[in-house]
Nucleic acid binder design. Structure first.
Lengths: 341, 341
DNA sequence: TTGTAAGCGTTATCAG
DNA sequence: CTGATAACGCTTACAA
């Protein structure tokens, strides 16, 4: 049934065709530090090209126990922040000639554990993980890290000594609050998702602290805690409108929530920023494309991805260090916090 | 990135501990059809569990030339339509216990070729590809398909006999046009990206044909052809507004363009749907979350993903067949085409 | 500088 | 039903 496609050339075929040993071919083509004369090298390269030879990465991996690929597990690839992070990671890996094995844990600790198990049994040289739960992700991670280097991104499981790379949450929030204060905001609501992520919890902490420090009112019933999604933000806005007293601004711990809040406020007949200011966090692509465009804190995803990949490629020592690399975000002031005319 | 702590148990270790041969262990644990006595089977399973044995997928792949993973290459993982498609593919693969190798070609034929080359040299059992160009993607695809089964998703390279799964473009557009006609629309503009995708070209063809058939005006300068992005849609709306004569509706070949068009029209002081109706195509998550929510054609991505995976897993025969599987989309009527009060 | 040969951890083909 | 044993394609001591 298989038509005229010939089986791909193996290392041995190249060796035979070139009249040298397999060892020599391997040394030339595998980029080994071993010395090979210029003439032989050229001969080998020529014949390899002529035969259309390509290494069998599986065989290479079995022999060298190096796969040249890394795994990445995120809670939801559909969340634009993670999508953009994955994209940056892919680019960073390309530079090192590494492939990406992507998995979505769908926010499930069990599924995450399964993915980690499958990856840590030799398919990848390292794992980049955005844990889906701050405590319950720990056991599977501990098991994985015994087999292969692991680096956490964005979200952190504090009970483990696994390196982490993420944004400086507190300073980002401080910038937001200072900006709102400057805009004359006297009262805020806060929409967050402390359950999903430790980062969100830290941000919320900081929102509360800064509100107190700046004399901005944050009523307990105006602190709304759910999950990260547009729908959640939409619901939060409805709640707010029903509460009767609508604050001057709504501070959200991520852009999806902020998008939902803006839509919800508009649906309720309020103008943003005319009646209420809104801020987000992350700076996903949509934040600058939406109307009104969203004031938010830009997470430098390129940097986060690059640092994570660097940690991973620098090997066990680096990933053993328990390093915590925090990278500052930058406030992007846009239309949702324009001063009222 | 070096090896782990305790060396993991190998097949041979299990065999030794259980006092049987490696062949027997392999037969039990590898799910081979070969008969093994119930007693031996249980013994092996017990010892394997006790030693925490897990197969080495690399060794297995080398021996059996089956990796239990498939590669997927999309033009941009950031495009929500592809993101959602990837997610569905991941789910479909999970059901078959297959892993996903994801790559982003960033719309570059060269990068795409590189990805295909790397994947087709043994790292995956099959490739799901959304080609980034209707002609220039062909050479690399032809080379890949000689090594490994390939299935095209969404976009198609017609010059190759490679199976394809996608939505029924023409009927989707006919539904949109019929709906607009019913709404009393007499003139439209059309925003598309025929360069990116044959599907878009087909949709555009159908828009023109249906406009003619239904007596709806589509002025040549109101046919705007660019790339698939929110920014592009935004620009198209500005162009439209500057043209002086704003049509009754704007038909877009994807949701991103439609999102941009809505934002652009609003920025220019027009109301959607008050002054202008807008339609999209795809039904990405945002389409129903945005305000006003977007009337669009829902692509059944779960089905598309499932069919593609089915073709791939059914092996060479299926992927040699040159099958073209088209799946009907369904019109989702939402706020952007509400009748003017 | 080059070659020989021993594995890497499985699966599959034989005999028994 | 079970067990030796030879591959799979490559890297890397060790020899020459």
């Amino acid at each position: 049934m298989s038509s005229g496609d010939r089986l791909p050339a193996r290392l041995a075929d190249v060796a035979e065709a070139a009249g040298v040993s397999t060892a020599t071919v391997s040394r030339v083509l595998g980029g080994s530090p071993h010395k090979v004369s210029a003439a032989t090298r050229e001969l080998v390269e020529k014949t390899a090209a002529r035969l259309g030879y390509r290494v069998n990465p599986i065989a290479r991996a079995l022999r060298s126990s190096l796969t040249r690929s890394v795994g990445m597990v995120v809670p939801s690839i559909r969340n634009p922040f993670f999508t953009e992070l994955v994209e940056e990671v892919e680019h960073a890996l390309s530079a090192h000639d590494l492939n990406l094995f992507l998995s979505d844990s769908r926010g499930s600790v069990e599924l995450e554990a399964k993915r980690l198990r499958s990856m840590s049994s030799g398919t990848v040289d390292g794992i980049l993980l955005v844990p889906c739960h701050a405590e319950r992700s720990a056991p599977a991670m501990a098991a994985a890290v015994a087999q292969v280097p692991v680096v956490q991104l964005d979200r952190e499981v504090p009970s483990l000594r696994i390196p982490w790379v993420g944004v400086e949450d507190r300073s980002g929030i401080r910038d937001v609050m200072a900006h709102l204060h400057e805009r004359g905001v006297r009262s805020i609501a806060h929409v967050t998702s402390t359950e999903s992520s430790l980062s969100a919890a830290v941000r919320t902490q900081e929102v509360i602290a800064e509100a107190a420090r700046l004399g901005i009112t944050l009523r307990p019933e105006h602190l709304i805690d759910g999950s990260f999604s547009i729908a959640e933000g939409h619901g939060a806005a409805e709640l707010l409108l029903r509460s009767g007293e609508v604050p001057d601004a709504v501070v959200c711990t991520d852009d999806l929530l902020a998008l939902g809040v803006v839509a919800g406020l508009q649906a309720g007949g309020r103008s943003v920023p005319g009646d209420v200011l809104v801020t987000g966090f992350d700076d996903i692509e949509l934040a600058s494309m939406m109307l009104p465009s969203l004031t938010t804190v830009r997470q430098p995803m390129e940097l986060i991805a690059a640092e994570a990949v660097r940690l991973l490629t620098q090997g066990r020592d680096a990933t053993r260090s328990g390093a915590r690399i925090t990278i500052p975000g930058t406030l992007q002031v846009r239309q949702t916090t324009q001063p009222r005319a």
